[in-house]
């Protein structure tokens, strides 16, 4: 038999740090919270502001469900302390669109069935929005790679790809900002990757 000690008493509680007012600018509004520095941006949104659209999937920057936009760039809100974001422009899924007025990405996600359980979805959409803001993702290969920071356990990846591509294509010059919704045969491959007849491989 071996003796094992969990949380040795040497680590006993120190005095807790008092809360302080922290003002966050979220979706165009100033919100003042009374929190200690140990509150992450994610927990501030979910537990203090009832903005539960931002999800907690791992709390360690390993899944992307908590992705929000800070000053237009997408970040993992679970790894940022709320107190570090005073003065930043924070945008969450609730700030991108509403059920009555969906953003182009939100509409494309519905049209392409780019989600199943919906839990990773706000993070996926915020990531895609960040990529579009930055103009970095242009090709399917780039979107696949640059959307890889958002896990989807339901495995909706190919539909996420086609939803994001549709919005990117729709923003290209000549598309007049209109969403192009290609006719899609639902028993076939994802949009833009209709499986061609197989070319004989080299033998």
């Amino acid at each position: 038999m071996t003796h094992v000690t969990q949380a040795p008493l040497g680590m006993s509680p120190a005095t807790l740090v008092p809360t302080q007012p922290v003002t966050l600018h979220i979706n165009g509004q100033d919100r003042t919270l009374h929190i200690a520095p140990w509150t992450t941006l994610l927990d501030a949104l979910r537990e203090y502001l009832d903005l539960t659209g931002t999800k907690k999937g791992c709390d360690h920057g390993q899944c992307g469900a908590c992705t929000v936009l800070v000053d237009g760039k997408h970040i993992n809100s679970c790894l940022s302390l709320a107190v570090m974001q005073e003065g930043s422009e924070i945008q969450t899924i609730e700030g991108l669109g509403t059920e009555e007025s969906l953003s182009p990405l939100q509409q494309a996600f519905i049209d392409h069935d780019a989600f199943q359980c919906g839990y990773c979805t706000p993070g996926q959409i915020c990531s895609a929005q960040g990529l579009i803001n930055e103009g970095k993702a242009r090709t399917e290969a780039e979107v696949r790679e640059l959307m890889s920071g958002n896990l989807c356990r339901c495995g909706a990846y190919s539909n996420i790809l086609s939803a994001v591509m549709e919005v990117i294509e729709g923003q290209k010059p000549g598309a007049e900002g209109k969403i192009v919704m290609p006719e899609k045969e639902w028993s076939a491959g994802a949009a833009h990757q209709q499986m061609p007849p197989v070319a004989p491989p080299k033998k």
């Binding site: 997408h74 970040i75 990531s127 920071g149």
Partner: peptide, 8 residues
Amino acid sequence: ASPQLRNM
């Protein structure tokens, strides 16, 4: 990492 981690 990932784009969002690289942004931070």
